[in-house]
């Protein structure tokens, strides 16, 4: 009976739980993160917002194991993070597809053996199976990001780190991509950390919106709106206003 409960819990949340304590990152003299404490439960969707240069991308790179933190600790599922973690995938603002590989070869990158079927399934999930054999150069920006998403999904990550992946897309494509990310997150139950400068996007997608200002967390807000959130509602606008007000602070209206 106990084992069945344990199994059920595993299948309910496939994600990685994150805990950072007093996380500090210095580049030479300059301290970028000053003691960041954040706890993320398995399967949670966290949206990290902040002005450019506040350290939010650095935070994500530390979680991805791309850079070493200067002091403090990061634990994934209770273990100290060992550099690049095989269950963690990161997506950047640029798709970083290899231009000399076809779409499907890009998705299959790093998979062992004959992985065409697996890669094709992942492309299906992002709705691009029919473009499998084209060069990335023939795709639009939004399609390239979807391929990058498929490439991350194919490894069945348990933690997906998104570093402003929609930042360079037009408004309509962004909304489509937000729906896609939300749907895939609900389907696969991984943990997501989305870094964005778009507060509306953060409120649309996040279980929690975390604000980083000048290297520290200054706001950690639960978003308890039911999902498929409508942007027009009063509650949505109130939450968005609350975060925006905090971000902009005293400079809200310079005039």
């Amino acid at each position: 009976m106990d084992t069945r409960v344990a199994e059920l819990e595993v299948s309910l949340s496939n994600g990685i739980a994150i805990r950072t304590t007093q996380l500090v990152k210095r580049y030479g003299e300059r301290e970028v993160l000053h003691g960041l404490d954040l706890t993320v439960e398995a399967g949670e969707f966290i949206a990290v917002v902040g002005r450019s240069g506040c350290g939010k991308s650095t935070f994500l790179r530390l979680l991805a194991g791309l850079e070493k933190h200067s002091s403090g600790s990061i634990s994934l599922d209770g273990y100290a993070a060992p550099g690049i973690h095989p269950d963690v995938r990161i997506m950047f603002q640029d798709s970083r597809l290899l231009p000399w590989r076809t779409v499907i070869q890009n998705v299959a990158l790093g998979l062992p053996g004959d992985s065409r079927q697996v890669a094709l399934a992942a492309l299906c999930e992002v709705g691009l199976a029919d473009r499998a054999d084209e060069w990335p150069a023939n795709l639009s920006g939004g399609q390239r990001q979807r391929v990058a998403l498929a490439r991350a999904l194919v490894h069945q990550p348990r933690l997906l780190l998104l570093d402003e992946p929609l930042g360079a897309l037009d408004a309509l494509t962004r909304i489509e991509m937000q729906c896609l990310i939300e749907r895939l997150w609900q389907q696969h139950n991984f943990t997501v950390l989305l870094v964005t400068h778009d507060v509306a996007e953060a409120v649309t997608l996040g279980d929690r919106v975390v604000l980083i200002e000048d290297g520290s967390i200054t706001l950690d807000l639960d978003i308890n709106l039911p999902r498929r959130r409508e942007r027009g509602t009063a509650e949505f606008a109130a939450l968005e206003g609350q975060v925006l007000h905090k971000v902009l602070g005293a400079q809200l209206c310079p005039n």
Binding site: A64, I84, F92, D94, G110, R151, H155
Partner: peptide, 12 residues
């Protein structure tokens, strides 16, 4: 360099 970093993340 970004592509090299990406390759490392994907376990190459």
């Amino acid at each position: 360099k970004d592509l090299i970093e990406m390759g490392k993340i994907y376990g190459l």
